[in-house]
Design a protein around this nucleic acid. Structure first.
Lengths: 159, 159
DNA sequence: ATTACTGCAAAGCATTTGCAAATGC
DNA sequence: GCATTTGCAAATGCTTTGCAGTAAT
């Protein structure tokens, strides 16, 4: 396919090798900027992340790297993933909090949350615009929606 | 108060007792419908959930119920919360999966996911409409957004 | 009487952490 | 040479589970 055919995002997957090679120097700068070291383990994890074009789980990646000639230990995989997140190369697709939160919904409409990272407070909101847009997207993607969640992380102004 | 005065979001706390009393019989039906028993422990957890008007964590609720005259054990609290979720009285405010998922975002635009519960597949999408709506809501709520996530659970049609 | 449920304590399991050895600078 | 990292293994902490006793039907 021609790169021009690719609609989604700007990622051009023929460029995958180039992608690591382009990105690595940036990670190096990031590390240098914080007086951290450029190590083999970090390079290995970095490459492995870029070799994937799908979503992955930290523990899967760690398992993959647990053996073989370029093995990296669990702790280091997790630590490097944190660095990469901080540097903005990966995004964590999960709530920050590992704990399960609940709320009772009897008599409530569906709603979503603004979560203040500083105080941990939740602000509820609901939006017809969003629900409708999601319904539209699902129809377009031939996907049957069961429910959706919208979470906005940030902070309350003036708190 | 007239129920009609109630806006959304501002739960009116005088109504709290009525809310449980209205809901409990429904839970009883649900339990009977699946040949499960109506027990004291379940009633205690149910009430405690409805007595809260905020979000709560399973482990906090469990800690609360760990002592006192109406104590309920940890295991039972978790099990009852599952039942209540299944029955639709509470909503779990967290991804289904406890594991952290990552993806690399270098060269990708921000995007979100449709997650197929059957196959576990992810379908990516992005929507300017949603981002703008969220920005609008944050402005309205005086909230400074850092980032947002939209997750739609459901299933792919014809898979 | 039966059978489901509860409490308990132990097990699970992803993730984190302390520390001695290894490595980058 | 010195400080940061790594690997290892043990610890964490929420959640789940097996089992024997208890309660609901």
């Amino acid at each position: 396919m021609g790169a021009s055919d690719k609609k989604f995002g700007e990622s051009v997957h023929e460029g995958e090798d180039r992608s690591v090679d382009e990105a690595w120097p940036l990670f190096v700068s990031f590390l240098k900027g914080r007086a951290s070291r450029i190590t083999q383990a970090r390079r290995i994890v970095f490459e492995r992340v870029f070799a994937r074009h799908d979503h992955f789980r930290a523990d899967d990646l760690s398992a993959e790297l647990a053996s073989g000639e370029n093995r990296v230990s669990r702790g280091t995989v997790y630590r490097t993933l944190d660095l990469m997140t901080e540097a903005g190369f990966v995004q964590k697709i999960r709530d920050h909090d590992v704990h399960a939160h609940y709320e009772h919904i009897y008599g409530h409409g569906r709603h979503h949350h603004l979560i203040c990272e500083a105080s941990g407070d939740f602000i509820e909101f609901s939006s017809k615009v969003i629900s409708e847009e999601i319904a539209r997207i699902c129809a377009e993607k031939n996907f049957e929606e069961q429910f959706h969640r919208v979470v906005v992380f940030g902070s309350r102004k003036g708190v």
